[in-house]
Write a protein that binds this DNA or RNA. Structure first.
Lengths: 206, 206
DNA sequence: TTGACCAACCTAACACTGTTAGGTATCGTT
DNA sequence: AACGATACCTAACAGTGTTAGGTTGGTCAA
C-alpha cells in the first residue's frame, strides 16, 4: 500500500532533479553544469542524485529526452499538412525555432559527440531517433509522389541533406554567435531563404 | 648576442609544445586533452607550459590557428578558377575534406562556443576569419556577375547560407557519427549532391 | 670578476570536477 | 518490536585548470 507512496516520492524527486537540472543548464550553461550544483539546488548532496540517475550523462539524457519529446510532439502537429514538400518546409522552420529557443539543449543533443545511451530507464525510444524517422517518413512520401528530381532516389540521403542544411545554420549560430568577425544575419529569416533554396534545388520545378 | 639564442630556444619549445598538443589531441581527443598530459609529453610539468602560453585555450587556439592556416592556404590555390560559382563548389568540397581529415580541430574551431581570442601573440589575423572573408569575397564576385537569383542580394546572407550548408553535414557527421539510429550515407558523396542542389537553388538556371 | 637580475622551469597548493565506498537513519513490512 | 531495504549522507579518490612562490642558471652592467 505504502510502497506506492515511495514510488510516488521517487517520481517526484526525479521530477525535481530534472527541473533543477533545467534551471542550472539555463543559468550556467553546459560547461557550468555540475552534480554538486544540481544537488544543492534541491537540498541534496551530489551523491544523492546517484540514487535516481546512473551518472551525470544519465541526468542530462533524461532532461533532453523529456524536453525534446515536446518538440517531437510539435512536429506531429505539422503532420497534417497534405503536401509533403510543404510539410518539409514547415518542419525545418519548427526545427530552427526549437533549436534557437533551447540552445543548450540543442548543443548537447546535436553538437556534442558521445552522449551515450542510458539503457536503464524505459527510454521508450530516443525522441531524436524518432524525429529522424519522422523526417525520413516525410521524405519517403515526397519521394513516392515524385516531388524530387530524378537523381535523388535514396530517402536517407535526402533526409541527411535536408537535416544537414537545417542543422548547419543553427549550430553555427550557436557556436559562433559571439564571434566579432562574422556579421550574422538574423537566423530565422536567413534560414527561411536557405530552406527555400535547398528545396528548390532538390525538387523538380512545377 | 645570446639573447637571440634564448628567443630561438623559446620558439623551439613553443613548437615542441604545439607538436605534442597535436599528438595528444589526436590520441585522446578534445576531452582527453589536459595540461599535465601535454607537459609530460615533452618532459615538462603542466605549469611549465604557462610560461609559453597564457592558458589551455591559448595552446589550443595557437594549434588551431597554425593548422587551419594550411587549409586557408589550400583555399587560396582554388582562387584561380575563373567562374566564381564553380569556385564556390570547389571550396565546399575542400572544406569538407579538411573537416573530415581534422575532426578534432574542426570540432574545436566550429562546434565549440567561446574559444576566446588569444590577443597576446602576433595572431596575424584569425585564419577562420580570413576564410570567411575569402568566402564572402567569392560570393561578392558571383553576385556582381549576376549569377544568383534576383532575390539574393546580400553577400553576408549568401555566405552564411553556403557556409551553413557545408557546415551542417560535416558537423552532424562528427557529432553523431556513432549514433546507431541514423544510417549515414558517405559524407563526401552526400555533400557533393547537397552542394549541387543548394547552388542550383541559389543561382539562376543557365 | 662580481653582483644583481631575470628567464625558465619547478613543487605545492587551491578550488573545482565526476564518481565510489561505506555509514546512518528512517520507513514499510513481518 | 525487530528486520531489512530505501534514501540519503560523509569521506575520499583521482583527476582537472590555474596560481603562488621557490630554485637554478645564464645574461648583463659595474
Amino acid at each position: 500500500m505504502h510502497a506506492v507512496d515511495r514510488e510516488e516520492h521517487n517520481r517526484e524527486v526525479k521530477r525535481k532533479i530534472l527541473d533543477a537540472a533545467r534551471e542550472v543548464l539555463l543559468a550556467d550553461g553546459v560547461d557550468g553544469f555540475s552534480m554538486r550544483k544540481l544537488g544543492a539546488k534541491i537540498g541534496y548532496t551530489a551523491t544523492g542524485i546517484y540514487h535516481h540517475f546512473a551518472d551525470k550523462q544519465g541526468v542530462l539524457k533524461a532532461l533532453l529526452d523529456a524536453d525534446f519529446k515536446a518538440f517531437r510532439a510539435g512536429l506531429g502537429r505539422i503532420g497534417k499538412i497534405d503536401d509533403p514538400i510543404e510539410r518539409l518546409r514547415k518542419m525545418g522552420i519548427a526545427y530552427v525555432e526549437f533549436a534557437s529557443a533551447h540552445q543548450d539543449h540543442y548543443r548537447l543533443l546535436f553538437m556534442t559527440p558521445q552522449l551515450k545511451q542510458v539503457d536503464g530507464e524505459i527510454t521508450c525510444g530516443d525522441p531524436a531517433e524518432d524525429a529522424y524517422a519522422f523526417l525520413r517518413e516525410t521524405v519517403t512520401e515526397a519521394l513516392a509522389a515524385g516531388a524530387f528530381r530524378p537523381e535523388f532516389k535514396d530517402a536517407d540521403e535526402l533526409s541527411q541533406i535536408i537535416w544537414g542544411g537545417v542543422h548547419g545554420l543553427v549550430s553555427l549560430h550557436i557556436a559562433k554567435a559571439n564571434d566579432p568577425w562574422v556579421p550574422w544575419k538574423p537566423l530565422k529569416a536567413t534560414f527561411r531563404r536557405m530552406n527555400d533554396a535547398l528545396i528548390r534545388g532538390l525538387t523538380v520545378a512545377e
